[in-house]
Design a binder for these strands. Structure first.
Lengths: 145, 145
DNA sequence: CTCGCTGTTGCAAGCGGTTGCAGGAGCAAG
DNA sequence: CTTGCTCCTGCAACCGCTTGCAACAGCGAG
């Protein structure tokens, strides 16, 4: 992947070591595509390196999260999921009935963010934002709200 | 407390039994005032009834949540907290540094809710909404070490 | 190259919360 | 009051995730 050297540089600059475990976890996240659970990442890596501990996976994910290389999406339901961080991040709407997730452009949250900053001095953390609810297909009422 | 007969009626109507454990948990929530953790509720009830199991507390809290008698606030950090459901409920901003919580009027989320409903048909579940971030006092712009 | 500091890992215990199960208790009928 | 159907509770095991600790290994110095 093209992003690897980038990740390595970020690690080194922050004073972290490049270990095989970290490389393997990063590979698994990159190859897995969409949102993955920590356990899925662990299961993938263990195929080729059976000694990797699940605790190490969680520690690596926390590290990558701190360096803004991955984002954590905690849907409340199910386990937390992880994906590679992108500059123009989208957020998530999660249906509580069918568990499907829908992408949400960051622009939808800009107005809210501005009001919180201006009126409370509160800087919301919108990197891993997910909101639950009922999607259009699962909505019990097709009439006016 | 005034609300008790109301709660009892709601339980009975839905076909649930009124047990001493449920009464004690409800008392603890009502008397505790603000947002409480399940463990705090358990600790309070155990003072007068030492056999109450923490699992029972969680099951009662899930039941009360299902009946919309209490709301769960999962801040991500710390444990989940519970409070009595109010018609005009507020939301929460949670500082990731000092863990303090700040109330947020529902009006701040109305615009977002409208857009999600109108543009996606997605009805967001805003009963237990909490958003993380940095509060004014913990903002790094204020003081540089 | 070797050495050694110190960040990192594997292991196992621990924590908050959930679940399966058998016995116990609320509530209604008689 | 007694009976009995179910729901509910206490217990213990379990799950996802975190943490304490001793041993290991990356990587810069010499």
């Amino acid at each position: 992947m093209a992003g690897h050297s980038n990740v390595v540089a970020t690690l080194r600059e922050a004073g972290y070591r490049l270990t095989p475990q970290r490389v393997m976890v990063l590979q698994a996240i990159a190859e897995g595509g969409g949102h993955q659970t920590a356990e899925a990442i662990h299961r993938e890596v263990v195929k080729t390196y059976p000694y990797l501990d699940i605790a190490t996976v969680y520690r690596i994910l926390q590290l990558l999260k701190r360096l803004h290389l991955v984002t954590e999406i905690d849907l409340g339901v199910d386990s937390a999921r992880y994906e590679v961080a992108e500059p123009n991040k989208h957020h998530h709407m999660v249906c509580r009935e069918c568990s499907r997730t829908f992408d949400l452009s960051p622009s939808y949250l800009e107005e809210l963010r501005h009001r919180l900053v201006n009126e409370f001095g509160f800087e919301p953390d919108l990197e891993h934002f997910a909101i639950g609810g009922l999607c259009a297909e699962c909505s019990p009422k097709r009439r006016e709200p």
